[in-house]
Design a protein around this nucleic acid. Structure first.
Lengths: 196, 196, 196, 196
DNA sequence: AATGAATGAGTGTTCATTCAT
DNA sequence: TATGAATGAACACTCATTCAT
C-alpha cells in the first residue's frame, strides 16, 4: 500500500514502474532498494517516501500484475461465444499484458512466492478467481460436447496457463503483431492439437 | 566444478543435493550458504571445502538439472516411432525428473538466469541442444504429413516446453502415477487438442 | 575518491585521519574497517558511507601523504639558493611532514604497495615527479661544480630519500625542535659526509 | 622454532624460504598459509608439520634475516682498519644480503613489527647489538679525530642504516656488480658527502 | 611427511531501514 | 519531496588452525 493517497498519481506510477522493472530484471532478492532509487534518479532513502518496505512494493507490483488477467477474462467469459472461441480469446487476452506490461507480469509470476503469506493471500485469491473463470470455459465446452468427453478440465486449465505463461521466458520486447501471432498459434494447439 | 573429483562421491552428492534443495526453496539470492550448511549439519565455512563459491554450486546444480533432459530426449529421438508417439514419449520423459529430482529441475529453470554469462553458457548450450532434438521431432511429423502443414515447429517446441515446465509450479511431491497421468493428458492436448 | 566532495569537509577529514592512523599502526592488511569505525565511534558499516572500499581509503591516505612532499620541494627548487642549500632545505622540508602528519607519510611509504596497480599509478606518478625535482637539485650542483664530478645524481637522490625516510622508523611523536635537529645533521652528512 | 630438529635440513630450508618469499611479496598479514603451501606444492595443512603457527614462521625468517648482519659486522669491527675503511666495509657488508637473501632481509625489515613482543624481543636484541657494533665504529673515528668533532654518532649510525636499508625499496634482482657499485657510492656519501 | 575435512572467528561489504532535517 | 548520515543485521568468503588418518 502506498504511503499516501495524495501523491500525484503520475509520480506514484513511476515509482512502482521502477520497482517492477528492477524486480523483473534481478529478482526480488537480487534487487536492492538502491537499484530502484537509481532508476528513479533519487537517493536510496527516497524510495521510502513512496512505500514503507521493499515487500510492500513487491505486493503492489504483483497486485497490478494479476488484476489485468482477471478483469479481461471475466469480460470474455460473459460474451456469447462458443467455448472454443472463448478459449482462443482468453489466450489472446492472456498474452496481451506480456506486451504492454511485461515487468509486472513477470514479477507476479516469478517473485510473488517471496511474499509473506499474509501479503501473498490477496494476490493468490485473485489468481485463483482467474483460474476459475478459465476452468469454467472448459467445462462449458464439455457440457456443450464441443470438447472431448475425457477432458480433465482442471488439467486443461493449468495447461493453458502454463503454455501461455511460458511465453514470458523468451518473449521480450517483440512487436504487437508478434504476440497476436503467437496467441493464434498457441490457441490452435490447445484447441486442435498439432495433428492434421 | 567441485574442488576435487576424487572426494568420496557420496558426500559430494549430499552437498550438492543440499544446495539444490535450498536454492529451489528460497531462490539463489534468497538462499544463504548458511542455509546450505545447516541442512548438512556443518558450519557455514565447511561448504567452501566443497565448492569455491555460491555461484559454482548453482552452476553445478543447473548442469545436473539440464543433463537429464538432453540425455533422455536423444534416446527417444533415436527410436523407430511415429512422430506423435515420440512427442508423447518426450513429454513423459520431460516430466519424469520433476518427480525424482525436482530441486535440480526447479533450480535449472528459475535460477540459471542469475549465473554470470560465462558460467551460464555451457548450461544454455545443453538446453539448446535439447530444444533442437525436440524441434526435430515436430519437423519429422511435418515431413511425414502426420502434423498439420501450417504447424510452426519452433513455436510448437516452445509450447511443449512451456506446457511441461509449468507443471513445476504446482506439482510437488505427488506420486509417480500422478506424474504419468499428467504426462498422458498433456501429450494428448498437444497432439490432439481439447476438441472432440 | 570520497563519495561526495560536498560533505562537511570536517567530518570527511576525521574519517580519513582515522583510516591513516589505523593503517599506520597495523598495516593495511592488519587493519580492519572495524578498527577505523571504532576510532570514529561509529558502527563498522558507517565507514562505507564515506569511502566505498578499504582500498579507496588507502589510496586517499597515500595521495594526501605524497602531495605534501611534491608541493614543498617544487617551491624550494624554484628559489635562488645554492644547490647545497637547496639540498639542506629539501631535507628539512622532507622531514617536516614526519612531524605533523606522520600517519599519512608512514602509510604512503609502507602500504602503498598493497594498492592495485590502477589505484597505485597516480600516487606513484606524483612520487616520481618529486624524485625528479630532487634529482635536478643534485644536477645543478654538478654543473655548478659545487658537487664532486663523479657524483651519481640518481644514486644521490635515492640516498637522500632513503636517509630521510628511515627517520620514520624511529621518530614518533618527537618535538619539532627534534626534527629540525635531525634535519640539520642529516643534511650535513649528505652534503659534507662524516669526515672532518 | 621448527617442530622437530630431525627433519632433513634441506626440506626445512625450503619451507622457510617459501615463507620468506611469500611474506616479502605480500606482507605478513597479506600472506596466507595457503600461499606458502602453494609455493611448496603441498596442501595448506601441510605447512603445520613444519611450524606450529604463522607467527613462528615469521620469527624464524626474521631471525635468519638479522643474524647475517650482526655476524658480518662483528668480523669487520675486529679488523685492524681505519674507522673510515670500516664504515666502507660495513656498508658493503650490509648490502650483501640484499643480493643473496633479499626476502629474509625485507621481511626482517618490514614485517618484524607484527611479531608479538615476546617473539620480537630476541630479534630486536640482535638488531640492537648490530647497531651498537656500527655505532662503535663511528665513535672510534671520533676519538681518532678522523671524523668531525661535532658528529652525533647515534644519528650517524641511524643514517647509515637508513641509507643502506632504503636500497631494499628499489633494488631487486640486480647483479652482484651492481650492489657493490651502490655500496661504494653510498659509503662515499657517508664518509665524504656529495660536495667536492 | 603429509592430507582431507572441518571449525570458529573474522573479513570486507551490502542491505533494508530509520530519522532528523 | 526528498537527502545525509547512520545503524544493525546479514552476507559471501577467507583464515589460521586442528586432528584423525
Amino acid at each position: 500500500m502506498l504511503r499516501s493517497d495524495k501523491q500525484t498519481p503520475k509520480r506514484q506510477k513511476e515509482i512502482i514502474d521502477a520497482a517492477a522493472a528492477v524486480f523483473a530484471a534481478k529478482g526480488f532478492h537480487g534487487a536492492s532498494t538502491r537499484d530502484i532509487a537509481e532508476r528513479l534518479g533519487i537517493q536510496q532513502a527516497g524510495v521510502y517516501y513512496y512505500f514503507k518496505s521493499k515487500e510492500e512494493a513487491l505486493v503492489e507490483v504483483c497486485r497490478i500484475g494479476v488484476e489485468e488477467f482477471y478483469d479481461r477474462a471475466r469480460d470474455i467469459a460473459a460474451k456469447a461465444q462458443s467455448p472454443a472461441d472463448k478459449i482462443t480469446s482468453a489466450v489472446a487476452a492472456h498474452l496481451l499484458p506480456f506486451h504492454h506490461m511485461p515487468d509486472y507480469v513477470e514479477v507476479f509470476h516469478n517473485e510473488r512466492r517471496y511474499l509473506s503469506p499474509k501479503l501473498r493471500q490477496p494476490v493468490t485469491d485473485l489468481a485463483q478467481k482467474y483460474e476459475a473463470v478459465l476452468e469454467k470455459m472448459f467445462r462449458e465446452g464439455l457440457e456443450n460436447q464441443t470438447f472431448r468427453a475425457d477432458l480433465d478440465c482442471r488439467v486443461a486449465t493449468l495447461a493453458l496457463l502454463g503454455l501461455c505463461n511460458s511465453v514470458l521466458q523468451w518473449y521480450r520486447g517483440g512487436s504487437k503483431n508478434n504476440i497476436d501471432d503467437i496467441a493464434r498459434k498457441y490457441a490452435q494447439i490447445i484447441v486442435s492439437g498439432v495433428t492434421r
